[in-house]
Design a protein around this nucleic acid. Sequence first.
DNA 1: TTGAAAGCGCTAACAC
DNA 2: GTGTTAGCGCTTTCAA
Lengths: 353, 353
Amino acid sequence: MKGGKEAERTKPAPALRERAGTARPRMADVARIAGVSTATVSRALRQPELVSPQVRSKIDAAVEHLSYRPNLMAGALASARSKTIGVIIPSMINAFFSVTLEAIEEGLAGAGYQLLIGNSHYELESEERLIASMLAWSPAALVVTGCRHSRGAMRALLDTDVPIVEMWELTDNPIDTAIGFSQRDIGVAVARHFKERGAKRLGFVGAMHQRDYRADARRAGFFETAQSIGYEPPAEVQLPGLPTSVRGAKAFAELMAEHSDVDAVLCTNDVVALGALFEAQRLGWSVPDRLKICGVGDVDFAAACEPRLSTVSLPRRAIGLKIAEVLRERIAGRLPTGGVHDLGFELVRRGST
Amino acid sequence: MKGGKEAERTKPAPALRERAGTARPRMADVARIAGVSTATVSRALRQPELVSPQVRSKIDAAVEHLSYRPNLMAGALASARSKTIGVIIPSMINAFFSVTLEAIEEGLAGAGYQLLIGNSHYELESEERLIASMLAWSPAALVVTGCRHSRGAMRALLDTDVPIVEMWELTDNPIDTAIGFSQRDIGVAVARHFKERGAKRLGFVGAMHQRDYRADARRAGFFETAQSIGYEPPAEVQLPGLPTSVRGAKAFAELMAEHSDVDAVLCTNDVVALGALFEAQRLGWSVPDRLKICGVGDVDFAAACEPRLSTVSLPRRAIGLKIAEVLRERIAGRLPTGGVHDLGFELVRRGST
DNA sequence: TTGAAAGCGCTAACAC
DNA sequence: GTGTTAGCGCTTTCAA
């Protein structure tokens, strides 16, 4: 049945409309049937309290009868704003951002917003392009990941009237609103934790330090603190490419082969940490006695593996809910400007440290 | 700086425009500067080959000079189609769908499409609502997960001219195009595999069997095949709520406590299987000798844990790339109708079976 | 190859 | 509380 319609797809809309009475009803149709003007229909649909009950119910009936659905693009064009929220994340596969996305969606549930999702692949130029094309939709708000942007992106973000939220990071100079936590402090906290647990020599397994500057901030906090509390610079390996467990296992093995004195390793995230944990098991390093391993993120598996993984729990969901909350206020026109919201993180000690 | 602008957000657009020369340039501005009509600018932007090189370069210069960006909503309204692709998935957190999403995005890269993402939470009514609101954006195409839909959703999907792709499942009667694999056959394949490996008594750990009917199809294939090749009905436990490793571990423990003769367990997905694997380790069931465990999905960790997890690898990425390919053709107006694409799956035997 | 003109379907002053 | 009247910024016939 769909196949059959194909030939008509390129015909001009009028032909389609005349062909049958099948065309999508317009607001004018509703207005005619209800015996009112389109302005009244429009009001009834968006600010019902401004319309008298009798008229309202006539309109409702007409809407129902025609199964009328407003054309959102026409509305958006006329009002210069759309019920759309642009969200730019650096990776769709990374479960952290997915949880935040889901929470944003949940927090906005029922308000009729659509999420426009863009993937920057951890590239600032890519982000700039996405920002430009999302702003072309006049979204109700735009959420970007991180506080670092290209010059062009920065200009576009500062120039627009669209509320902007920078998430998953903190800054002293938010464009508008920042909601996240201190990445650097995570490194600090883990270094101190290792000290408390009696570690003698630290190690670090990282990934994408050139592109993922948030991960790099964690690393910096770890290294600087390590040295300030008396450690020599941590031994380090960087994964080639995206962080995966398989690569994490391999990198960890390399690290330990070269620096067998290391007895506490921070991995850039839990996926990598789990790879390291399994590899340690295979290589016979006993965790946590001979070797401590800590991850970042607190993914689901972290609490289930053996030994259970110590890690840093991030406010992935809280970030999304807070964004939704702030956005609701901001879009409604209350709440003049956003500010900075530090949602913190939590070091979760389990069996691996 | 953003904060200061806040007060003006509610002012009428004209005021904003008059206030300064800061307004976003319109196509008419470009036309004026280039000394042509807007019709020509429009053509130059979307079908440059129809415009003479000299005029084209004048227009390009004007566009550049004003940093003009077309208002997508106006274009969408006028042409009754938008460069938007709606995608409805049942869960944002599930890494499977994220990979497919990323692949769709990648496959469409550069073509200037935006993804509108909706989350149905495995609920058909929710899907119906999302379909309606996405169609209100006149997307270039709509991708839904699965082939089962509510009556209303079905009507809406059949009624529209928007190309529809049903993914992650196969059917004899696609609405338009189906791209996926047979969920049922996965259960069949695993049952046979267990037989080959000499298992005597099967078990199953499931989740959300009421809501995730795709998972239920896998289960059905497993149970039916098990019996047809001589097993008694597999012992079964269902997780309460979403499948997580922690719950998987617990459910697995219950299963084995009640049915200690089970020596081969299929888990509804890898996350659950990993929970089971770790729990087996804690409980001292040796894998795979005393007990075989198989998951579904082939997540990253599956190849890294110890023993490595046998599982069913799904064409998560291939589905996305195929969707992008089909959509490009379909939107271009080539390729009359979609059809059904079976991308298959692969049983990956590793250490756990 | 280009331009004129007529909308696309809705919103938002403003007047009644 | 409701209708009138202009657009929103672009696309697309159709004629030149």
